[in-house]
Amino acid sequence: MDLTVVAYVIYLLVSVGLTVWVARTLSRNGRIFLGDVLHGDEKLADAVNHLLVVGFYLVNLGFVALYLNQDERITDARGVFETVSTKLGVVLLVLGALHLGNVFVLNKIRRRGIMEREQLPPVPPQGWAAPAAGA
Score class of each variant (00 low, 15 high):
residue 4 T to W: 03
residue 4 T to D: 10
residue 7 A to G: 06
residue 7 A to W: 06
residue 7 A to M: 09
residue 7 A to L: 08
residue 8 Y to I: 07
residue 9 V to I: 15
residue 9 V to P: 07
residue 9 V to N: 10
residue 10 I to C: 11
residue 12 L to Q: 08
residue 12 L to R: 01
residue 14 V to W: 04
residue 14 V to S: 10
residue 14 V to L: 14
residue 15 S to M: 00
residue 16 V to G: 00
residue 17 G to T: 00
residue 19 T to E: 00
residue 20 V to E: 07
residue 21 W to L: 12
residue 22 V to I: 08
residue 24 R to T: 04
residue 25 T to Y: 07
residue 26 L to K: 09
residue 26 L to C: 07
residue 26 L to Y: 00
residue 27 S to I: 07
residue 27 S to N: 10
residue 27 S to C: 06
residue 28 R to D: 06
residue 28 R to Y: 04
residue 29 N to I: 13
residue 31 R to H: 05
residue 32 I to T: 09
residue 32 I to C: 01
residue 33 F to G: 03
residue 34 L to R: 00
residue 34 L to M: 06
residue 34 L to W: 02
residue 35 G to S: 08
residue 39 H to W: 08
residue 39 H to D: 15
residue 39 H to G: 12
residue 40 G to P: 09
residue 40 G to H: 02
residue 42 E to V: 15
residue 42 E to W: 09
residue 44 L to N: 04
residue 45 A to M: 04
residue 46 D to T: 02
residue 46 D to G: 00
residue 47 A to D: 12
residue 49 N to V: 03
residue 50 H to L: 12
residue 51 L to T: 11
residue 51 L to S: 15
residue 52 L to P: 04
residue 53 V to A: 11
residue 54 V to D: 11
residue 54 V to E: 15
residue 55 G to S: 05
residue 56 F to K: 03
residue 57 Y to R: 11
residue 58 L to K: 04
residue 58 L to C: 13
residue 59 V to R: 00
residue 60 N to G: 06
residue 61 L to T: 01
residue 66 L to E: 00
residue 67 Y to M: 09
residue 67 Y to F: 11
residue 67 Y to D: 08
residue 68 L to C: 12
residue 70 Q to L: 13
residue 71 D to I: 10
residue 75 T to I: 09
residue 75 T to M: 09
residue 75 T to E: 13
residue 75 T to G: 00
residue 75 T to V: 12
residue 77 A to M: 13
residue 77 A to H: 04
residue 80 V to F: 01
residue 81 F to C: 05
residue 82 E to S: 11
residue 82 E to G: 03
residue 83 T to Y: 01
residue 84 V to P: 02
residue 84 V to E: 02
residue 84 V to R: 05
residue 86 T to Y: 15
residue 88 L to E: 15
residue 89 G to C: 06
residue 90 V to W: 08
residue 90 V to F: 07
residue 91 V to G: 03
residue 91 V to I: 09
residue 93 L to P: 06
residue 93 L to I: 08
residue 94 V to K: 04
residue 95 L to F: 02
residue 95 L to N: 06
residue 96 G to W: 03
residue 96 G to D: 05
residue 97 A to R: 04
residue 98 L to T: 02
residue 98 L to G: 04
residue 99 H to I: 10
residue 99 H to T: 15
residue 100 L to F: 13
residue 101 G to I: 03
residue 104 F to H: 05
residue 104 F to G: 00
residue 105 V to Y: 00
residue 105 V to G: 01
residue 105 V to H: 06
residue 106 L to W: 02
residue 106 L to T: 11
residue 109 I to L: 15
residue 110 R to E: 11
residue 110 R to S: 12
residue 111 R to F: 01
residue 112 R to L: 11
residue 113 G to N: 13
residue 114 I to W: 05
residue 115 M to F: 12
residue 116 E to S: 12
residue 117 R to H: 14
residue 119 Q to L: 12
residue 120 L to K: 09
residue 120 L to Y: 14
residue 121 P to Q: 08
residue 121 P to A: 06
residue 122 P to E: 15
residue 126 Q to A: 14
residue 127 G to F: 06
residue 127 G to R: 08
residue 129 A to S: 12
residue 130 A to F: 13
residue 131 P to N: 14
residue 131 P to A: 15
residue 131 P to V: 13
residue 132 A to D: 13
residue 132 A to S: 14
residue 133 A to P: 01
residue 134 G to N: 10
residue 135 A to T: 14
